[in-house]
């Protein structure tokens, strides 16, 4: 049954594309969907600096794309930003994809906002999506944003429950409003459990220095400092720098670490320190990308602001470390309250 739906969906997508080109509407070719059939459309993806392999949210986007490709039949093209480039160059990257017949096109990161605004207007027949930005909307653009503060609230609550010292830490990769959302939710969640708790807050770098997302050494010393200051849970919202923070926690034997973006307990690269990763705040960039591609595949590309929050399972926390089990009841309780609106989590620290 499922296979039938899939075949139909692809056929429909193919038909739509053809229709857009003014071709015939006689889709539904029997062979569509089989593994040898030619790709029916091309998905373009423009990464922010770091690209595929950054162990962080570019990678999460890549995962979503990979998953979509496994299920749907399309060609893909991934381009990457360079350091120090201007909006004009980002614009050109998107434009190259659009003129190259890529549709849909996904821009990973808020830095593409200005560029996408211009390009989406130039190519009204192409579907676009942008991650982490809702500064503008257009009929052919989906704004995929996340309620990071909600997910962070839950891990904050877990951190406060797990802390014996009444002292926890937050490490942000780069001091941007986006990361401040993580900080805000985390602090609120912790205070909701223990109003007297101390939250140490540190950001590794300041923009335009974005190396804070990829500097394990800095993550390690910062976490070490927090642990020395009595923190016994450290939330590392710092991309690749998190591994350093976990090493510090592991070395100190006792403190917990909390991961970010994906379920870091399961990441092979962190296998050595996984036992101290209590939980991770999960930001489902992969889900957002997958769902966007799917919506296009299904013939109804998503547009407008798509907020991935707790209710939509766009954010959450991981339970793969058995140690977190004793705190999940409380966390789930908060989750219900946030979903029901009983608790509103502010995005500002």
């Amino acid at each position: 049954m499922r296979r039938v739906i899939k075949v139909a969906a692809i056929a429909m997508a193919g038909a739509l594309t053809l229709a857009a080109c003014g071709g015939d509407s006689d889709g539904g070719g029997a062979s569509a969907g089989s593994s040898v059939s030619p790709a029916s459309y091309k998905v373009g993806l423009a990464y922010d600096i770091g690209g595929r392999g950054d162990q962080s949210f570019n990678d999460a986007a890549a995962r979503g794309l990979d998953q979509a490709q496994k299920e749907f039949n399309f060609e893909k093209k991934e381009l990457e930003a360079s350091a120090g480039e201007t909006d004009a160059q980002k614009e050109e990257r998107l434009r190259l994809l659009a003129t190259g017949g890529y549709n849909p096109i996904i821009a990973v990161g808020f830095a593409y906002a200005t560029a996408l605004k211009a390009v989406s207007a130039e190519f009204p027949d192409t579907s676009f999506a942008i991650i982490d930005d809702a500064s503008f909307t257009a009929a052919n653009v989906a704004n995929l944003v996340f309620a990071e503060e909600q997910g962070s609230f839950l891990v904050g609550a877990i951190a406060a429950s797990a802390s014996k010292t009444g002292n926890i830490g937050f490490i942000g990769g780069v001091n941007t409003p986006l990361l401040q959302k993580f900080e805000a939710g985390y602090t609120q969640g912790a205070k909701a459990v223990n109003a007297d708790i101390t939250v140490q807050v540190k950001y590794l770098t300041q923009p335009p220095d974005f190396t804070g997302f990829n500097d394990p050494a800095k993550g390690k010393t910062t976490a070490q400092g927090m642990i020395d200051n009595k923190a016994d849970v450290v939330y590392a919202a710092a991309g690749g720098s998190g591994s350093g923070a976990f090493e510090a926690a592991k070395a100190a034997a006792g403190p917990w670490g909390i991961g970010v973006d994906s379920d870091q307990y399961k990441l092979p690269s962190l296998a050595k320190v996984k036992d101290i990763i209590l939980t991770s705040m999960i930001k489902r960039v992969d889900v957002a990308v997958y769902q966007f591609v799917k919506s296009y595949n299904d013939g109804a590309p998503a547009t407008g602001i798509q907020t991935f929050d707790l209710a939509k399972e766009g954010v959450g926390y991981s339970t793969s470390n058995p140690a977190v089990a004793e705190y999940t009841a409380k966390a789930d309780e908060f989750k219900e309250k946030i979903i029901s609106g009983e608790i509103t989590v502010s995005a500002k620290p």
Binding site: D133, A134, S135, T176, P177, I305
Partner: peptide, 14 residues
Amino acid sequence: PGRLAVEVQGSNNI
């Protein structure tokens, strides 16, 4: 925000 930057609604940029 509050110093010399202004926020754009819905944006993660400032």
